[in-house]
Amino acid sequence: MKKTLKIVVLAKQVPDTRNVGKDAMKADGTVNRAALPAIFNPEDLNALEQALILKDLCPGSTVQILTMGPPRAADIIRDAMFRGADGGILLTDRKFAGSDTLATSYALSRALLKLSPDIIIAGRQAIDGDTAQVGPQVAEKLGLPQVTYAEEIVKIDDNEIVIKRRLERGVEVVSSPLPMVMTVNASAPECRPQHAKRVMKYKHARTTSELQAAQNDYLNALCNEKEYLNIQEWSVADVDADDQQLGLLGSPTKVKTIENVVFQAKEAKKYTNADEDINNLMVELIASHTLG
């Protein structure tokens, strides 16, 4: 019988940069965040699935979501609960604003120290930054081994996990002692969908600030009565973090300039899909030795 595991999944709510529509840029050329839907970072869903697979393998294990973000990021904790997570923690404080990956990793590591999980699972990277830095940096801050680019958990024992990694040019199978941090690739299995019974059970799960904002007696009573409906909210003080290492102050990297992308105008030769046009194009390309 394998031991029960305490698993924490690091997840992020991100703007859906993959579906940038025409209204994504404002007239003044800045990004219109309001026009981008906020979603569960895709590879964090792959990470959640790995956590749920572990929970299936080791009954009695718990899966908690840890996310840092504004109050609305509680949405992804609920989403994760609908899919199988036991609960979650929202790390939220204005002092976190402006954090680069190092300051973010520091904040998360402070929260993780309180949780002391056996396994920390994160998506490889978030689609709004694509840096893939937070996983390894959290591991370093906690002094834990890391296994990145994970695709499959091959084996889990009391003190060791065996993981298959998908690299650019092949695969690698590695073993790591517990506790440890793993980051999961998009090539890993997709996350299981929301489960109807779980949606019914957890749909009223709220953070304290959500309850305050709603001012709904029924919700208050419900969350008071049922412990599992409480999504915990932690501030800088709750995780005993050092202000100097957070936000802009704690971020070694600074943004010097931001340039909105404007393509340089260059005249393209225009063609239609008429036979004559395509024929002329091919003749031109062959004549210029671009083709053939």
Partner: peptide, 9 residues
Amino acid sequence: FGGNIIATI
């Protein structure tokens, strides 16, 4: 930001 901006860090 999904390539909508170019940042100098």
